[in-house]
Design a protein around this nucleic acid. Structure first.
Length: 919
RNA sequence: GGGUGCUUAGCUCAGUUGGUAGAGCAUCGCCUUUACAUGGCGGGGGUCGGGGGUUCGAGCCCCUCAGCACCCACCA
């Protein structure tokens, strides 16, 4: 600690390098294993606040358990993030005027690897800036060779067991990305649409049916019209045919209970190739499937020529116009509907008939459900298990193939007759299926990125090999993640983990909230409210922040609004708060709430806390000039005993709340103890002993000893939250305790020790605080300068009060800034400001200092409060129901309090009378 | 259509098995007291979303209404 004032930039850089260079992040090889698998960030760019939040929490857990003596591994790495990363690089290419199809698959993938290095390196450097203590020597990427091996192993086993199958199915198709996506990747968006009523003439009849549809363009693929079997209006038409307008096709009128008689006209056009319900209905009735779209959602050759080649929405307009001119468009109604959009591209998703690979999820889901129901996996907060279970209990098959180039290639080959062979490699399948020399072609598709993520907790530990790491650290201790990926990831890890290792992948799932901005808005590029954790650590000028938020915007027109809001939120940019303050803030915000509003004011407050710790350490070190532990006799003061006891009380809270994952309560306890007990009280109580001639050398020695050991303990307590500042300070403090070990990181975490709890000291110091506070209160309310020494007169009081006053004269004089303390008899009390501490009466003589009427007003305010309290208590105690039914200790407490208040009231009233007399 | 969560001081949030409401920030007053003005000391501020119920006693339990947020789902 070279600087007088706390400057995070000056200390944070060097320590990290030392820790990493000395391999302190690696498992110790001793103690109970404790492992966290980091949710691997996507290599799509840089870390955002959510990562910072979750990683801070994980690092706190990791550092805590490492200090508690566990054999601790934080398995870190990054995720290839299939679609997301491919899109980033495609956008990059587009800005260069290039295209992945021009580049070709091999070159494009090469290009993505280049991007992966750039993004991965950025992420790792951000993580280092945050101070995270993952084992870098074991860093993994989801496309690393042994993770590829794990993916293949799982795919092949599931295929051979019949749990993976390939089939032509209706899937969610993203016509922009040209790939299938899973149900989870489809986002329903509310939209104001229309319901068109279209007349379908019945063949060989003058009758017609009116169908209602939100998607008129799909009529080109209609293969039936359905009515409810019991619908009296249409009974006679079931089995007949209608002429499908704009085409020359005749399609049947069928009956199915799926149709809701009350909705629209009760007639539904059926398009099995472009609607999930219609598909199911088509299967029941053996309807043909007519696919009318290309992969890009243009009308294809199966439709009448005049519509071919039209975009789906252009086609819609034309079809509506044509229907209208044919007199077949009956009416249009406004209609609320949900539009399915691709999570990544935002394109309207089309149900589309393609060959895809699927996982039979329901089979895998059963054990995953049981694991949570039987408590083998515990969610924190508990109620997320409901969400998890609900989803698994209704799980659909998982479409795992993606028509992308970036990802795990599907380990399947086909021959010319489209027979499928699954194996580790082309060679492997030839041998396995005895194929000889026939032509084989590998499946072009890659796997859904979540397929490899599902294996992360064990694939990173070397599975399917039974490596020492796998045997030691699996199952991992806890998964720390957000509720937004419970389905995508958590559930699938549990399914795969149980299936392939026979064990749960983690024993606990700690679900964090989602980081939002200070207004409660979700952080997103398009809202322009994104914060980069590193900018909070290092600081950023306003102009740079605006530039960062408005560059590469999809919607340019938002620039002005974003700039305005940014200027409003951060009028002078963001100062560098340091990683320690940021990490502590994240933990302090980690309540059970699902939304976490990130307010820079909190960060500022905790930066100030760092400053406080810094200065307190400077103070303690200043008191230790010439301090030698070995030489002198030691005598511990009441304050020494008290602060040690308070420290234990704090450690007890910390221990409990760590188990509960209540980091907000842990940080609160740390903050309260460090600032309000240690700094505000203990350091002030230490000063009189250290500065006064009246105290013995052994008393001074005891105080120094306590200052030092308490501070050193505090530093260890705080270290998991604030690794940098605590290391920096500890390096100065520890040698004074003759500690020669190299780093605070590997020291023992302070443990709660009941034997150091000292209730006697606590009671007495609490009394002392009350007396000091009472005097300060008068000073404050009467606007007397804190610099002005005051005379104190005492009256009444018990024998204990007298003893204590005598004993603590030094403390009282110093902390309440008194020039004198004298006992007087009741008759001699002068005009004074009076306050009570139980039986003891404290008087500050008014003599020019205090206005009598101000004192009367102050007392009357106090009297008012007491009267209200007394009345409430009296009513309560007069209620027989209360005194007979409430527990006796509660009643006794109430009685005692009432008696005290009555006595205080009387005394204060007497004082008012006296003062009025003086006046 | 189902489900979940939230509503406590100006703001952001705690509130343990029901026993007379707490913190941080903001605010007001006094203060350059030799660790710290990124500070010290003191103060003010809430009928705990509305209504009803259980109870001697409800921020906490039950019912109901309202508002906000989110998740899931195939109504054309």
């Amino acid at each position: 600690m070279k600087n007088k004032s706390y400057e995070p930039q000056a200390i944070e850089q060097t320590w990290y390098q030392k820790w990493e260079a000395n391999n302190y992040f690696a498992p110790s090889g001793r103690g109970m294993p404790y492992c966290i698998a980091l949710p691997p960030p996507n290599v799509t760019g840089t870390l955002h606040m959510g990562h910072g939040f979750q990683q801070s929490i994980m690092d706190v857990l990791i550092r805590y358990h490492r200090m508690c003596g566990n054999n601790t591994l934080w398995q870190i790495g990054t995720d290839h993030a299939g679609i997301a990363t491919q899109m980033v690089v495609e956008n990059l290419l587009r800005s260069e005027g290039a295209d992945r199809h021009i580049l070709g698959r091999e070159n494009f993938v090469k290009r993505i690897w280049g991007w992966k290095k750039y993004s991965g390196d950025t992420i790792c450097s951000q993580e280092r800036r945050l101070g995270i203590s993952g084992d870098w020597t074991r860093e993994k990427f989801t496309l690393d060779p042994n993770l590829v091996q794990a993916v293949q192993h799982v795919f092949i086993s599931l295929y051979e067991e019949g749990l993976i199958y390939r089939g032509k199915r209706l899937v969610n198709w993203d016509p922009v990305l040209n790939t299938a996506i899973s149900d989870l990747e489809v986002i329903s968006e509310d939209s104001e649409g229309s319901l068109w009523h279209i007349r379908y003439p019945v063949a060989d009849s003058t009758e017609s049916l009116i169908v209602a549809t939100t998607r008129p363009e799909t009529m080109l693929g209609d293969t039936a019209v359905a009515v409810h079997p019991e619908d009296a209006r249409y009974q006679h038409l079931i089995g007949k045919q209608v002429k499908l307008p704009l085409t020359d096709r005749l399609i049947p009128i069928i009956a199915d209970e799926y149709v809701d008689m009350k909705f629209g006209t009760g007639c539904v056009k059926i398009t099995p190739a472009h609607d999930f319900n219609d598909y199911a209905l088509g299967q029941r009735h053996n309807l043909p499937l007519i696919n009318i779209f290309t992969k890009d959602a243009y009308i294809n050759e199966n439709a009448p020529k005049i519509y071919q080649g039209l975009d789906r929405f252009v086609a819609r307009e034309k079809i509506l116009a044509d229907l209208k001119s044919a007199g077949l468009l009956i009416k249009v109604e406004k209609h609320q509907l949900k539009i399915p959009k691709g999570e990544r591209s935002g394109a309207i998703v089309e149900p589309y008939l393609t060959d895809q690979w699927f996982v039979k999820a329901s089979v895998l889901a059963k054990p995953a459900i049981e694991a949570v129901e039987h408590g083998k996996i515990k969610f924190i907060p508990e109620n997320w298990s409901k969400i998890y279970l609900q989803w698994l209990e209704n799980i659909e098959d998982w479409c795992i193939s993606r028509q992308l180039w970036w990802g795990h290639r599907i380990p399947a080959w086909s021959d010319e007759k489209n027979n499928i062979y699954v194996g580790r490699s082309e060679e492997d399948v030839r041998v396995k299926y005895k194929l000889g020399n026939i032509a084989l072609k590998q499946d072009e598709d890659v796997l859904d990125t979540w397929f490899s993520s599902a294996l992360w907790p064990f694939s990173t530990l070397g599975w399917p090999e039974q490596t020492p790491e796998f045997k030691t650290f699996y199952p991992t201790a806890v998964l720390v993640t957000g509720f937004d990926i419970i389905f995508f990831w958590v559930a699938r890890m549990v399914m795969m983990g149980l299936k392939f290792t026979g064990e749960v992948p983690f024993k606990e799932v700690y679900i964090t909230g989602l980081i939002r901005d200070s207004h409660g808005q979700k952080m997103s590029k398009s809202k322009g409210n994104v914060l980069d954790p590193v900018d909070l650590i290092d600081g950023i000028a306003l102009d740079d922040l605006i530039k960062k938020r408005t560059s590469n915007l999809m919607q340019q027109h938002l620039t002005k609004e974003i700039e305005k809001q940014t200027r409003l939120d951060f009028p002078s940019g963001i100062p560098g708060f340091g990683a320690d303050a940021l990490r502590f803030t994240f933990c302090a915000l980690a309540t059970t709430s699902r939304d976490v509003n990130f307010d820079i004011a909190r960060l500022e407050g905790y930066r100030n806390f760092c400053t406080k710790i810094w200065n307190a350490t400077r103070f303690v070190l200043m008191q230790l000039e010439g301090f030698d532990r070995s030489n002198n006799a030691v005598e511990f003061s009441l304050a020494d005993r008290w602060i040690k006891s308070e420290l234990q009380r704090t450690l007890h809270i910390i221990e409990t709340e760590f188990k509960n994952y209540r980091f907000d309560l842990v940080t609160q306890a740390i903050y309260e103890f460090t600032w309000h007990q240690f700094c505000d009280w203990y350091l002030e109580l230490a000063k009189p002993i250290l500065y006064s001639e009246n105290f013995s050398a052994s008393a001074k020695q005891g105080t120094r000893e306590t200052l030092l050991s308490t501070l050193e303990t505090i530093l260890r307590v705080i270290h998991p939250f604030m690794p940098f500042i605590t290391e920096e300070l500890w390096q100065e403090v520890a040698p004074k305790l003759n500690i020669k070990r190299p780093t605070i990181m590997l020291e023992q975490y302070p443990q709660f020790d009941k034997s150091e709890v000292d209730n006697e000291a606590v009671v007495e110091i609490e009394w002392l605080k009350k007396v000091i506070l009472a005097i300060r209160n008068i000073r404050g309310e009467m606007n007397i300068s804190p610099a002005k020494p005051l005379p104190l007169l005492l009256s009444k009081g018990t024998v204990t009060d007298k003893k204590r006053i005598e004993k603590h004269t030094q403390y009282l004089k110093a902390l309440a800034r008194l020039e004198s303390i004298d006992w007087i008899t009741e008759e001699k009390i002068p005009a004074a400001a009076t306050t009570l501490v139980d039986e003891l009466e404290l008087h500050i003589p008014l003599a020019n200092l205090i206005d009598i009427s101000a004192e009367i007003a102050r007392l009357n305010k106090e009297i008012g409060k007491l009267k209200a309290d007394i009345e409430r208590a009296a009513t309560k105690l007069n209620n027989v129901n209360y005194t007979s039914k409430a527990p006796s200790d509660v009643v006794a407490r109430e009685r005692l309090k009432l008696a005290e208040n009555q006595s205080t009231l009387q005394k204060l009233q007497t004082r008012v009378m006296d003062l009025l007399g003086v006046k």
